[in-house]
Amino acid sequence: MDPLLLLVQLLNGVQLGLLLFLVAAGLTLVFGILDVINLAHGVLYMVGAYAAAVVLVRSGHFALAVLAGPLVALGAGLALDRLVLRFVYDRDHLDQVLATFGVLIFVNELVRVLFGPAALPFPLPAGFEWSVRLPGGATYPAWRLAIIAAGAILAFLLFWVLTRTRAGMLVRAAATDPAMLEMLGVDVRRLFLLVLGAGAALAGFAGAMAGPIVAVQPGMGDQILILAFVVIVTGGTGSVQGALLGSLLVGLADTLGRSFLTDMLRLALPPAAANEVGPALASMLIYLVMAGVLLARPRGLMPVRRAAR
């Protein structure tokens, strides 16, 4: 195996992982703290990407676009709370899945009606059209480095807020025992709204950052939502550390599987069979990893210890 290719693929895996983390962090907080399964979380990622695309094309300023993504997603998240989620907070998970799945279908169609079914243009921001040349002929696009940097900075900020601030302490307390927190006089409802808003803004930011590398089109959030669920289940629901660990694990497993699995199988199998089995196995790999983790640790890698409800 070419060590340089391995290095590049590790970098690719980390980058995919950090992008996933931005989506999964919000999802895991909402699931872990509000105890709501929010299938509409991927929609917020799409809303962020669309808002950024529209602002970028209209204004030409990427900084404005990257601000618009999380802001509009935040607004959409709060509207989601007002219009749908507050009716299902206390219902069981199946009701939440039904309600938020309805939102997912509705918003996907709404976006199609408003913007058309075609993908929107979302060019690379000015100043990022270059790539870093690595030894051995490989290149690494500047925008991917920007995603890595933004993901790392946000992960750090999130941990800082959660572990070093009063609001973060309350959020962690709410994840463990919301009833007790309420009895201590904390407005848990407002805290929930804060968590939901932060999660929505993170997803919107992820959408804006992913805009230049993916197709900005209706339904773009559905694929990422599945991955985000794999991440939070692997990492342990409700835990941001778990989400980061899960994201990196899923990103690396997916990337390395796609890169090397078929080639490795070719050493043992005839080429036609390796071509058949390799890609199928590579696309299953993250689910196998998840199953493996759950087998060893049924509540994920870093579960939040929770008081009995």
Binding site: L5, N12, Q15, V214, R258
Partner: peptide
């Protein structure tokens, strides 16, 4: 949606 691994290959 991500082709970074394939592009590196």
């Amino acid at each position: 949606v991500d082709f970074s691994a394939e592009i590196a290959k």
